[in-house]
């Protein structure tokens, strides 16, 4: 049983005009086995939350805490966070030319587990996961994200999720840019991980359509750098019907 706890998180980025605060006091608790959807309009800070938890150097945490099972995540380096059990499926996965997917996956698995995976099981695991994600065998010998289509990149992110088995998975707009078939394949992958590992999932999305495939237990509406409203799955249905307009009405 793991708990990711975010308390009063403030994050800013450096811009040409000085420091700009993006997250303005985020509170969120995700436990193993729970799926939380974070929904919100563009620019509300959803991705900033994801990258801040993962430790991207662009984002400065100015106050607040993030803990995983009581451990101070913010004090950890990026790779230490991953080894502690955090995983970020990125919206725009980065190309690493010349590094094959198979080499990358084995290196990451070894780093996360602290020992090299047993070869026979490992090869079988990769083959199974790739088949389930409808990825052909040749994929493993391509460079990481090198020349991948948008859909291939997202499948590759979910492949890593399945193989690395984190305690907490943050999916940053994994649904964006996917056609319906790819969305279903990717969603099935996430559901397999949830069923087999009891991971906590923080699903960041702009649209509600992925929530037809991955059922959230909690829905948080993110507006202007903080959680504006929380509820159960019915909140997502309401957003689908009404959109974000009522959150964006200027207030005095």
């Amino acid at each position: 049983m793991s708990t990711l706890e975010i308390r009063d998180l403030h994050v800013s980025v450096d811009t040409d005009k000085g420091s700009k605060e993006i997250l303005k006091g985020v509170n969120l608790t995700v436990k193993s086995g729970e799926t939380h959807a974070i929904m919100g309009p563009n620019g509300s800070g959803k991705s900033t939350l994801a990258y801040s938890i993962a430790g991207h150097p662009k984002y400065n945490v100015t106050s607040g805490t993030v803990t995983l099972d009581g451990e101070d995540v913010l004090a950890m380096k990026v790779d230490e966070r991953a080894r502690a059990g955090l995983f970020l499926a990125m919206q725009y996965p980065v190309e690493v030319p010349g590094v094959t997917v198979s080499n990358f996956l084995r290196t990451a698995k070894t780093a996360v587990d602290g020992e090299a995976p047993k070869l026979r099981h490992w090869v079988k695991d990769i083959k199974q996961s790739m088949a389930a994600l409808r990825m052909d065998d040749g994929f493993a010998e391509r460079g990481v994200n090198e020349g991948f289509s948008g859909g291939e990149k997202k499948r590759h992110e979910i492949l890593q999720l399945e193989l690395l088995k984190p305690k907490m998975a943050i999916l940053d707009e994994t649904d964006s840019g996917l056609d319906v078939d790819a969305l279903r394949v990717v969603s099935e992958g996430v559901n397999r991980v949830k069923d087999s590992t009891d991971a906590g999932v923080l699903l960041i999305t702009h649209y509600t359509r992925i929530l037809r495939y991955i059922k959230p237990d909690h829905v948080h509406v993110f507006v202007n750098g903080r959680v504006a409203e929380e509820g159960g799955p019915e909140l997502a249905d309401r957003l689908e019907a009404e959109g974000y307009d009522r959150f964006l009405t200027p207030t005095a």
């Binding site: 993962a54 430790g55 991207h56 150097p57 380096k77 990026v78 790779d79 966070r81 991953a82 080894r83 995983f87 970020l88 990125m90 996965p93 980065v94 190309e95 690493v96 990358f104 290196t107 990451a108 780093a111 996360v112 990481v144 890593q160 690395l164």
Partner: peptide, 12 residues
Amino acid sequence: QLFYLQARGIPE
């Protein structure tokens, strides 16, 4: 690239 690899647990 460094961030991406580190985010998968690989030390710098």
